[in-house]
Computed example of a mutant assay.
Amino acid sequence: MVFGKSRIVGDPKDAIDDAFITLEAIKNDTSREIRLVESTAFDKEFAPEVAEQLKDIILPRKGQTVTHDTAFGVFIGYSLGIDKNRPSAEFRELVAKKMRKDIQAHVSHIIEKNKAARMECHSFYFYFLPFNEADGEKKEIMKSLLEL
């Protein structure tokens, strides 16, 4: 079972801190989990036997005991702070270098938060998503999605 949290803010440390608040709440109360798959989607996209197998794995049924491991997917959107008025190749190279540096700078903080939350036995998958200006771009993305 993979639970997820996403956060888009200017500073990756703030996003990590916020994510762990939510992840701890999920760990302590899995009844708050959100249903991510509409059950009719199985029948539309898969052969009947495959759809049934997927339903047995993903959709809990009353009285059914299922053993599962819990994992957490964390999507961190943050501001890079790189001047975007550069040639594409140069910009891509700077983004790659900056992201490596940013991620390496926050690994120990993630480990500390994981230990403090007593979640060391769970798998974590962190995805860092670079933005030029996270707060403003987040609003633009939401606005364009709501206008669809």
Rank of each mutant, 00 (worst) to 15 (best):
Y78T: 04
A47L: 10
P48E: 05
I57E: 12
D43E: 09
K98G: 01
I111R: 15
Q104M: 09
Y78G: 00
H68Q: 12
D18F: 12
Y127S: 14
Q64H: 11
I57L: 14
P60W: 04
N132V: 11
F131E: 01
V66A: 11
L145E: 05
H68C: 09
K101P: 00
Y78K: 03
E33Y: 07
K55E: 07
R61L: 10
Q53G: 11
I82R: 03
C121D: 13
L80T: 05
V74N: 01
D18I: 08
E147M: 07
S88D: 13
E133A: 12
V74L: 00
L36A: 08
R86D: 05
K138W: 07
L129D: 03
I82Y: 04
E133Q: 13
V9C: 06
T40G: 11
E45Q: 13
L23V: 10
A47W: 05
E90F: 02
Y127E: 10
F128M: 04
R35N: 13
V37S: 07
E38S: 10
P87Q: 13
A15W: 02
L129A: 05
K27S: 09
A51F: 06
E120Q: 15
E45C: 08
A15V: 02
I21R: 14
K13F: 06
P87A: 12
G10E: 11
E24K: 14
I26Q: 09
T67A: 08
K113D: 03
I103V: 15
A89I: 07
L80V: 00
T70I: 15
N114M: 13
A15F: 02
L80F: 00
S31M: 05
R61Q: 15
K84E: 11
K138E: 12
H122W: 02
I21V: 15
V66Q: 14
L146A: 10
A15S: 08
R7C: 15
L129F: 06
L54W: 06
R118H: 12
M99I: 05
S39H: 10
V107G: 03
